[in-house]
């Protein structure tokens, strides 16, 4: 019951943060809410016994990804143009949610110990981690040893992502785009320069 209360509270908090994030128009506030969402999610991962995942989510989601978003906001406008709720995307999202909820009934009960996912390879991993590998943290032994190929692939993916970002951003490219005829765009170009002056 204790876990139920804590978990339901955290999920409710997450839902509130997500709704506020959808409604807010200041992008700085939006990015901070995104960091708060990640941190609350990390707390929920601890409740669900995933301490390694919680650690990563707190360091990555609440830390580095917020820093990157703030760095982006130093280069783009900080306020969003207000939008009304778009009807078609809203209908699609609600319909997809309803379909998922209908089909989620086929999953085993939440927290059941005899669910298929718990009786297949997981017991081997847990016993093998103690007997064959001698590493108490089962997540580490599965990550680096049992599923070493998987982790190699993931490492190469972040390697590739870094190369992509460096290619997109680090080059000396042409000056910001100017359209003298259109007021709105020359306005925003001036915006960049003002910002650069402020920073300098």
């Amino acid at each position: 019951m204790g876990m139920f209360t804590v978990n339901a509270f955290l999920l409710l908090l997450l839902a509130i943060i997500a709704v506020v994030a959808l409604r807010v128009h200041q992008l700085f506030a939006l990015v901070m809410l995104s960091g708060a969402f990640s941190l609350t999610a990390a707390a929920q991962f601890v409740v669900l016994d995933a301490v390694d995942v919680a650690f990563t989510e707190a360091a990555v989601g609440a830390g580095i990804s917020t820093v990157l978003a703030l760095a982006t906001l130093s280069l783009v406008p900080r306020e969003e143009k207000p939008h009304a709720i778009a009807p078609l995307p809203a209908i699609i999202a609600v319909a997809a949610g309803v379909l998922l909820m209908v089909s989620i009934g086929d999953l085993p009960q939440f927290g059941a110990a005899d669910a298929p996912v718990h009786v297949h390879v997981a017991p081997d991993y847990i016993s093998g981690s103690a007997e064959k590998i001698g590493v108490p943290n089962v997540v580490t032994s599965v990550l680096a040893s049992y599923r070493g190929y998987d982790t190699l692939g993931e490492t190469v993916v972040i390697f590739t992502a870094a190369i992509a970002v460096l290619l997109i951003l680090a080059g000396w490219t042409r000056a910001p785009y100017r359209r003298e005829n259109e007021d709105r765009n020359s306005q925003s170009t001036r915006n960049i320069e003002d910002k650069a002056e402020d920073a300098g």
């Binding site: 989601g61 990157l68 996912v117 997540v139 998987d150 993931e154």
Partner: peptide
């Protein structure tokens, strides 16, 4: 079950990249 933890742990870092 440690298996979902492993999958998600790597997915978070790939996600931020």
């Amino acid at each position: 079950n440690p298996l979902p933890h492993v999958l998600i742990l790597t997915a978070i870092v790939v996600g931020v990249a």
